[in-house]
Design a protein around this nucleic acid. Structure first.
Length: 258
DNA sequence: AGTACCACCTGACGGC
DNA sequence: TGCCGTCAGGTGGTAC
């Protein structure tokens, strides 16, 4: 699930549920999800604190503690957050659970465990050490143009490259390319100035719309509703095709994406 | 530098 | 019903 829009929705969810409440304890149910910190140290740094604010960079969510450190959450392919009171409402794969003084719990659920949970004193430093590019949602057109300048290879690969720009994944890269009418395998070097402009505008639009609809009930003209081989293209009378691009499933319309 | 493939994990689904 | 292969919205390492 989680690409930039999903994680932004998680961030807002965290803000509206779990801020400003004392964390009485944390349960680490899968130690392997912790990155560069022992369960003991993690617990010591978190317990007794409150989450005071949040930040998102690409697909990484940072939950700041009032101590100044931040809990880092990365969701892999199957992660999500759930805030609940009744233990019966605990999600099926809660790998890390924050327990609050008010009786509620925040579960970091992650079936496939491809994500990670970490701790950092400096968000900027963490982002830099991870080698992440600028956040795709907070990027000016000039910055976007500069990123692509001199890049080679396929445009979809560029979108997916977290070190180039952070946040776009498989689904929303396909979506942006579809909305822009550009073939996922187009070489970056072959894009016209107009193409680059369209890509930027559509990327921003796709991100914004996806966040506004909370990553469900997407607008009808979104490709995401038609990720099926042989589905009808929502923009023309073509048929959606499925191919592999950098070994990821890619859906596009050969008729309106050139 | 770019790409292709494997690995890490778990679960759902379709075919036989 | 059961087994098996395939696939899934991410990423890191490795080898061409």
């Amino acid at each position: 699930m989680p690409e930039l829009p999903d994680v932004e929705v998680f961030r807002r969810y965290l803000d509206s549920t779990a801020l400003h409440q004392k964390i009485s304890s944390v349960e680490i149910r899968k130690e392997r999800l912790l990155e560069d910190v022992s369960p003991d140290d993690f617990k010591k740094s978190v317990e007794g604190n409150e989450f005071s604010s949040s930040h998102r960079h690409g697909k990484h969510l940072f939950a700041r503690l009032n101590s100044g450190s931040s809990v880092v959450l990365h969701f892999g392919m199957t992660g999500e957050l759930k805030y609940y009171k009744d233990p019966a409402d605990e999600p099926d794969h809660a790998r890390v659970v924050f327990h609050f003084d008010n009786g509620y719990h925040l579960g970091y659920d992650n079936m496939r465990m491809l994500g990670k949970v970490a701790l950092t004193d400096e968000i900027d430093e963490y982002v830099e050490n991870e080698g992440l590019g600028p956040d795709a949602g907070r990027l000016s057109f000039e910055e976007f143009k500069d990123l692509l300048d001199g890049k080679r290879g396929m445009i979809k690969s560029a979108f997916m490259d977290q070190s180039l720009l952070a946040g776009m994944g498989n689904i929303f890269s396909d979506e942006t390319l579809f909305q822009a009418g550009i073939h996922p395998k187009r070489q970056v070097g072959n894009l016209s100035e107009k193409d680059v402009e369209t890509l930027y505008e559509k990327m921003m639009e796709v991100i914004e719309k996806a966040v506004v609809c909370q990553v469900s009930d997407f607008p009808d003209y979104f490709l995401i509703n038609y990720r099926d081989e042989d589905a009808e293209c929502p923009r023309c009378d073509g048929e959606i095709e499925k191919i592999k691009v950098s070994s990821r499933s890619t859906y596009f319309c050969p008729k309106c994406q050139k």
